[in-house]
């Protein structure tokens, strides 16, 4: 479903972010990418969103070469991929409800769908009572749960969670991981990047370990080894 084919990325100042990275992800998998800061985890997932272009190699999503999709069509691809970021990236001028609804509106969904689906995902992340709050009125954990709700509301095939727990305390971290696990159980592929040992060890799922732009381990049921 997702296939990285010998992907390399060299930034303008000749610093190497990725070097000859190849791996594939099957539908329904829960895959964690671990590594120190600067190991290339974020660059790797940004490639899938076409937020970054590789200097060599290619990235395929459902047999489409992501970087051959023209700029004005890329949003159709992104609707199939939900994204959750370390810094939440909610729209500050919109309420929790509107943030989630925006992703549906942007995808051109009908009003009735929005009215039925948004409360549903709000319920899934247990934030029904905060629907009309603006992001700055929510805690970090709550913001991240809204971001997850936004990511899943269009029923994407994949969710990319780039260090979603990086800014959260252990309790919130645990909650977020539980929600991601639940989403995965419902059939959505999840790509999680993290450097939180506890999260990885609790998951007992596939782990790709990166170091200085290279994959150094790929374990079926991995632990955090670095």
């Amino acid at each position: 479903m997702i296939y990285y084919d010998r992907v390399g990325k060299v930034y303008a100042d000749n610093s190497i972010a990725l070097e000859d990275v190849s791996f594939s992800v099957e539908p329904g998998e829960f895959i964690s990418i671990v590594g120190h800061s600067g190991a290339g985890k974020t660059t790797l997932v940004k490639m899938l969103l076409a937020e970054e272009k590789p200097t060599s190699g290619s990235v395929f999503f459902e047999s489409i070469n992501v970087h051959e999709v023209p700029m004005n069509r890329i949003n159709h691809l992104r609707r199939k991929i939900g994204t959750v970021f370390q810094d939440f990236r909610l729209l500050p001028q919109k309420t929790a409800y509107e943030n989630i609804a925006f992703a549906m509106e942007a995808a051109g969904r009908a009003e009735e769908e929005i009215h039925s689906d948004v409360p549903h995902v709000l319920d899934l992340v247990d934030l029904t009572d905060k629907a009309n709050n603006f992001p700055d009125e929510l805690s970090g954990g709550e913001q991240q749960r809204i971001a997850i709700a936004r990511a899943i509301v269009n029923q994407p095939d994949v969710i990319i969670a780039d260090e979603p727990t990086g800014n959260l305390d252990p309790v919130n971290t645990f909650e977020i991981v539980q929600i991601l696990k639940k989403i995965n159980d419902l059939g959505t592929t999840i790509i999680l990047t993290t450097h939180n040992k506890g999260v990885i060890d609790a998951l007992k799922k596939r782990v790709i370990t990166m170091d200085r732009g290279k994959i150094i381990r790929d374990d079926r049921e991995g632990k955090y080894i670095l």
Binding site: L49, E51, M71, N72, N75, R89, A106
Partner: peptide, 16 residues
């Protein structure tokens, strides 16, 4: 500008 980036990543079209 950051909102515009977020909108792009959430899958909104350029016109939208």
């Amino acid at each position: 500008r950051e909102e515009i980036q977020v909108m792009r990543l959430v899958g909104a079209g350029q016109f939208y």
